[in-house]
């Protein structure tokens, strides 16, 4: 059990891990803000958890909800700000044959996974973006509603056909960050 805990709960990671609790390591200011908010809320929740069996007779928990709501709104609006991205766009870059960089990226099927690769997360072409640079993702879908999410970057954005959504990130450090749709289409 201790081994499990030390491997999953306490270890640092940029991807989901077996028996994982808590968050992946943050790589953007947004995610740091989200973790901070979570811990702030947890502080109040722990007070409720241990105090409520007795104090529920007297206290109105709306007070606690208000305490939680204000930092939550603040973070929500801060995260909604889209900073001016760097002047380049992905298609501005050329490959060695002077062609625009444009590619498809698909999940690696389970049968093709290499040793140590992550199931349902590994892709055949990784998107490479610079660190310490404002990056904006413009997200849409071709068929049904999907979503683009990367927990370590603290982003999750729905992808709708016929509509463009945007999220911006500033990545603080190097890493390989995994994510996937969190809007599973109904089959």
């Amino acid at each position: 059990m201790l081994n499990l805990l030390s491997l999953s709960f306490l270890s640092s990671c940029d991807s989901p891990r077996p028996w994982g609790l808590y968050f992946q390591d943050s790589a953007t200011p947004q995610m740091e803000g989200l973790v901070e908010l979570h811990d702030n809320i947890m502080f109040y929740l722990v007070i409720i958890l241990f105090g409520s069996p007795i104090s529920h007779k007297y206290l109105n928990h709306a007070l606690i909800l208000i305490l939680i709501a204000f930092p939550s709104f603040k973070l929500l609006y801060l995260m909604d700000e889209v900073s001016d991205p760097a002047i380049y766009q992905y298609p501005d870059f050329l490959n060695t044959e002077d062609e625009f960089i444009e590619f498809d990226s698909y999940l690696v099927p389970e049968s093709d996974l290499e040793e140590g690769a992550l199931r349902m997360l590994e892709v055949d072409n990784r998107v490479i973006i610079p660190e310490l640079t404002h990056v904006r993702f413009i997200i849409t879908a071709a068929d049904v509603i999907h979503s683009f999410a990367c927990p370590a970057l603290g982003i999750k954005c729905d992808a709708y056909p016929g509509r463009l959504n945007q999220v911006s990130v500033l990545i603080n450090r190097e890493g390989v960050f995994y994510g996937l749709t969190e809007q599973w289409p109904k089959l």
């Binding site: 811990d39 502080f43 109040y44 722990v46 409720i48 241990f50 105090g51 409520s52 007795i54 104090s55």
Partner: peptide, 17 residues
Amino acid sequence: DISVAFGLGTSFGYLFW
């Protein structure tokens, strides 16, 4: 009641923090 509830809750809250 209130002092025990707040005492317990705040202690564990700070323990987490």
